[in-house]
Amino acid sequence: MSLTRSWAPPGPYDLRRSLGVLQRGPHDPACQVAPGAVWRASRTPQGPVTLRLVQGRARVTGTAWGPGAEWALDRLPALLGAADRPEEFVPHHRLTREAHRRLPGLRLARTGLVLESLIPAVLEQKVTAIEAYRAWGRLLRRFGEPAPGPAERRPKGLYVMPDPRGWALVPSWEWHRAGVDGKRAATVVRAARVAGRLEEAAAMALPEALARLQLVPGVGPWTAAETVQRSNGEPDAITVGDLHLPRQVGYALTGRRDTDDAGMLALLAPYVGQRHRAAQLILAGGPRMPRRAPRMYAHDIARF
């Protein structure tokens, strides 16, 4: 049986762009963009859920299957960005002003699920996106469960991630086969063991949420920010410690190629309270820094 709820955005809305940040690569087993719909498979406090989201002219409709259907639909507006306030953003650069004008339908999603965003962020630490996406997909297909709902209606290969106990019981050799080193695997296991305390961060203000996540050894500022951007929909959760973001922001705003974290934060100082949104608009509307070297080499530790 399915349940349905709809939400009417108060203004322009772009479903794919707003929820695209939740997809971990083009073949994410937990989030897929099919023709005309966005599909999500999540593990809620009430159990697994499959959520199908379709944007109409004036409303976004969510259809949910599984034990977590009511929980997911109760929070549908928040997921879609109802609590976000893009109108409060004040551009201070021509680039952000133009991007904000061109992307009026962009809202910051809020999943309310911390572990769902934390684990893939841990897998993305200090490796290429391809490596992280591959590990996430393999682990979900191996240790997750097929998403609830009629198989003939949902996309093939949609999976719900393991519960905290399932993550904690993944054997060491399976982490290795997925290309995840021991440090990242241990961080995921530690997080899974305190999942209940971490999930409380979804209702915390930004400083408290970041501090709570970083109590887990192996979770630093980068991972914590990447998590609360999605779980809490935080417009000021700027990512620091990233290999590319400071240089991209610096290049877009100044033409310089050597901007570090401190330089990026200085450039974004006028946007305090909205620095994550500013960075997203800069990436969406600014020039991309030309590459001078090949992409970072993707290692496959499963072969070693």
Rank of each mutant, 00 (worst) to 15 (best):
C31M: 13
T61M: 11
P45R: 07
R40K: 12
A34G: 12
A64Q: 04
R52A: 06
C31L: 12
Y13R: 11
R57C: 15
R59E: 15
W39T: 02
W65Y: 12
S42F: 13
Q46V: 10
V49S: 01
R24H: 10
A37D: 13
Q55R: 14
R59M: 15
T63M: 06
D14I: 13
P48H: 01
G25L: 01
L19V: 10
P48M: 04
Q23E: 13
R16C: 14
P45S: 11
L19F: 06
Q55A: 14
V49L: 03
V21C: 05
H27A: 14
W39R: 00
P26C: 07
A37C: 14
H27Q: 14
W65V: 02
S42L: 15
H27R: 15
A41Y: 04
T50N: 03
L15S: 04
W65P: 00
A41T: 07
T61I: 11
R40V: 03
W39G: 00
V60H: 08
W39C: 04
A37K: 09
D14S: 14
Q55T: 13
L51C: 03
G62T: 08
C31Q: 07
D28C: 09
R17S: 13
P26E: 08
H27P: 11
G62Y: 02
G62V: 04
P35I: 09
A41I: 08
Q32M: 12
R52D: 07
R52Q: 09
G62F: 04
